[in-house]
Design a protein around this nucleic acid. Structure first.
Lengths: 225, 225
DNA sequence: GCTCTTTCGCTACGAGTCGTAGCGTAACTC
DNA sequence: GAGTTACGCTACGACTCGTAGCGAAAGAGC
């Protein structure tokens, strides 16, 4: 729920918000769900370019004005509609760093194979190049949240002894953060580029080759850093 | 000139086309240049989302109908307008594979830092997910043409002895082609992701770290492939 | 020169989308 | 019950799209 304009849909209140709860008719949580679902359906059928606010409203069976009361525009709506899909990504423990990476690469590829995610992700990123607020939202809703997978995989590999532990002190923490950022960009970037720009399949064979490359690089990088 | 509808702008004819040359008033090459330049200017000022065909026509001082006579729509026009920028990329020989890669990474980053390229590239790729013809054009006009940089860098490194030579026979050639594809997706993907999705700068320090990672991976990959 | 062919600029048009305003009604809090 | 907010609906001006039709311009072929 990144692009919501005000707040407080119907549902359980948190903390002292119960006391300061706003009066009046609450927003329908069901409408929210219907709108986001309708947005995803419209993305599948029409793609980003031909998707219109009026069409989404009709699918969700809400008034067009209700859409504009909650989201500033198409960008924010679509971002919210697809951001939740990225939270489904997980990092199952397959016993080795190589298998962990291959697993997450294939999972990510499956997500990007869905028509609603691929058309929406690229389009929203494109719009974010001329909209700073949108860029911030993308970072919060997608980028930063998925870095957890890299952090998690790295910790596991360090526990297994496959990678050296972080250096001590603030310096070591900064170096570790830089490594996480770099690895994240390499993995996500390579998969996205292969799938959407090159337009070729991210299958098990490619994932294996990519992982081999990355793993060799990781050992070289970590041993000297 | 990928998205042109028919052909033959004013200019020197090639081969026997001189004899079979069509009669009638030729298309204005100056108008072509003005339109593409106007498109880039509009991209800078408005970004993909707010760019309109009417606006481009006004900037280029041509009639809107002239635009539609040459390009099917916004997608094709913008692709042609930015594709030429990618041809400026070169691979200067800096003496070592590491320096060559760092150089091309920084060059690519500088290209992606330009507002017209970043907003256009992502948007056109997004549209291509629901338009097969457009996807093919992107591959021809951008992707395949830039793979030359990888091929070139690889050959240089092999000549220097920094990488092992390709294996013999059709099998070796296929493996080499797969390697080129993989490396291309990793380099281009990582830089694009860092610059546009993560939204952080691709500076010399990042390029050095990335190159170190890739280089270690390359040696590991090539030695066993 | 002349004719033929194609492109050009211009105007006008219906269709579709945008985002908002206004209104009466529904839902919930105190 | 009073107060407040969300909702559905309609209508609207502004804008963009992509096309059609016209007369004029620019070159090719004779």
């Amino acid at each position: 729920m990144v692009g919501r304009m005000q707040c407080s849909p119907t549902g359980p209140r948190k903390g002292r918000a119960r006391l300061t709860g706003r009066t009046g008719r609450p927003r329908s949580a069901a409408a929210d769900a219907a709108i986001l679902e309708a947005t995803r359906a419209a993305l599948v059928e029409l793609g980003w370019g031909k998707l219109t606010m009026g069409d989404v409203a009709a699918r969700a069976k809400v008034a067009k004005t209700t859409l504009y009361r909650r989201w500033a525009g198409k960008n924010e709506l679509v971002l919210d509609a697809v951001a939740v899909l990225f939270d489904e990504l997980e990092l199952p423990d397959r016993g080795s760093l190589k298998d962990d990476i291959e697993g997450v690469v294939l999972q990510f590829a499956a997500l990007l194979a869905r028509p609603e995610t691929k058309t929406a992700l690229m389009a929203v990123v494109a719009e974010s190049t001329t909209d700073d607020a949108l860029r911030t939202r993308i970072r919060e809703a997608v980028v930063e949240r998925q870095k957890r997978l890299v952090v998690q995989g790295r910790q596991r590999a360090q526990r297994r002894g496959e990678l050296p532990p972080d250096g001590g002190g603030p310096e070591g923490a900064a170096a570790a953060a830089r490594s996480v950022d770099l690895i994240f960009d390499v993995i996500a970037g390579a998969v996205v580029h292969r799938a959407l720009v090159s337009g070729e399949p991210v299958d098990a064979a490619w994932a294996a080759r990519f992982t081999t490359l990355l793993l060799a690089g990781l050992r070289g990088l970590e041993s000297r850093d």
